[in-house]
Structure formats: C-alpha cells, structure tokens
Amino acid sequence: MTAPSPLRRVGGSPRRSAGPALARTGLLAPGIVLLVLFAFLPLVALVITGFVNDRSQLTTENFAHVFSSGTYLRLLGRTLLLSFAVTVVAIALGWPAAWALARHVKPARRTMILGLVIIPYITSQLLLIYGFLTLIQAGGPISYVLTQLHLTGPQDSILYTPWANFLMLVYESMPTAVLVLYSAAESVSPSVLEAARTLGARPRYVFTHVIWPLSAPMVVVNFTLTFVQTVGAFAEPAVLGGPDGQMLGNTISTQISSGANDGFAVALSLVLLVTSLLVVGVVTALVSWTKRAQSGGPTNRLTAPPRPRTRARTPELTVARES
C-alpha cells in the first residue's frame, strides 16, 4: 500500500481508475491465483484426463468405453430419471409450503420458520443421512410406531432399498425448494392476484396465467440447483440405497477412490455433467415456452413483478447509523 497521493486526496472520488490500478492488482492477486490454480486448472484437468488413456495418449477410448457398455448407460439413465423425479417431487411438495410462508404467516413468525428450514440446509449431509437411517431402520422410531399400530412387522424397513435413497434425496432437496420458491412467492404481488380474482378468474386460471408465468424463472433456478446436485449424489445411495439403489455417482466415486482408472472415471463424470446440463437446458426451454404460451400478449406486462427486494437494504441503514 502506497501513501495517498495529493492528487487523489484533492479529487476525493475513488472512481477514477488511473491511480488505484496497482492497489487493485494487490487486492485481486491472492484470489485470482487461487481461482486459476484450484478452480480453472481442475476443470481443465477434468477434460484432459477424460481424453487421455493410461499410456498418456490422446484418445476418445474412455468415452467409447462408457457408451459401449449397457451397464453404465442404464445406470446413467436411472440416475438422470431418479434425479428428475426427486427434483420435481421436491418442488411440488415445497411450493405450497413456501407459498403459505410468504402469504399466510405473520412476518414476525417468518424469520423463525425460515430458521427452522435452514437447520437441515446447513447441517452436515452425513449427519442428516445418519439421522435418516436411525429414523427408518427396523426398530427405529418410525418402525416402532408402525409396529405398535400393527401396520408392519418389527423387522420391516425401507432401509437399503432405492426408496430410502429417493426419500433422502427429496428430503435434502426440500429446504432449497422452500427457500427459492419462497422468494418466488414473495415476488407475486398480492394486488395482481386480487385483480385476477376480482375480474372473475378461477383459482386454476390464476395459477396457470398469473402465478406460473411470474414464478417460472425461480422454478427453473430451483430445478437447476437441485437437479445438478442430485445427479452428483453418491453418499446417500451408498449408505441407504442398498444394492439396487446405486447411482452413477457411486461408480465414479469408487473409481476415483481406487485411483485405478482415472480417465474412465472422468469420462463418466463428463458424460454425467453434459447429459444433466442437457436435461436442464430442455427443462428451461420447456418452462419458458409454457410461460410464453400462458401469459399471452403484451397486456400482461402489467403483471410484471416488482423487483425482488434486495436483502441488505434495511440492515445497511441501521449499521450505517450505528457507526
């Protein structure tokens, strides 16, 4: 850091870019070095490793291996399908809850409820998986209650079945759904709904022609986040899924841990990444198509949502006054 030059002090405004360029380099350097070495290089390394065989030759044989094997393609298909189902179910279950939170809960209570939603969101995934395991295992709380009600036998449990894995993944996706769709619900202005109702729109029509077009972008955000995360899941199926509940992430993680065939593991990863981005792209296109189809012509501009409130505004003011 250099001493302030008289010129800059007189000018006062830090907006001119002549002086601070050097200082800025100093500010940016550590972050950029880290990002280049450990974000950019790993992504490059992924691509390179996928196209190199164990004799260090450039090749596509890793990908040929993936696509020639029915096992891996079936596993890929199942992983994508499962992740799609998990994401859609989480959105469908989370939306009404998020809607109620934004509309029908007193603001004072909202902060507390959001806190309760965040607990599973920031609790270690492994602890949640473990807690879920204790919950559903034979003799555990759920099994105990069901046995007492004579609905199941004492040894019945969905643990180590694909259903356990599915439910766990839905559980983990739900907080994101509630948080993201809560923002979506907040951005639908109550007066717009009131107007639609006053003009005689039935609830279904209000949903398809007002709420859906206004919420669609956040639904896409939610879909993208959850789907991409779920596609890469491997701990949940490994712990809960049993032999029939495995996902492609398990194959990839086993390959990486063994270190035996990096190129193949990376090729699998890249195929998974690209196909899941394709799914995201298709869903995004479909959603924006329904949005356009439903919301019709330019008259609907009137229903454009107010910009979502930015989070920091009020705290910033109070802080500024304090200091």
Binding site: A97, A100, I113, G131, V178
Partner: peptide, 22 residues
C-alpha cells in the same frame, strides 16, 4: 390458506424428524 399453512407446518415437522430421531 389454511390447507397450505397446515402443509407448511407438516413440512417443518418432517424436516425435524431425522434430527429429532438423533
């Protein structure tokens, strides 16, 4: 409004279940 509110609280209970189990 009531139905979605009940649903919200049901979701919160389900969120808490694995933790409560522990």
């Amino acid at each position: 409004a009531l139905v979605t509110k009940v649903w919200l609280y049901a979701v919160l209970v389900v969120f808490a279940l694995p933790v409560l189990s522990m």
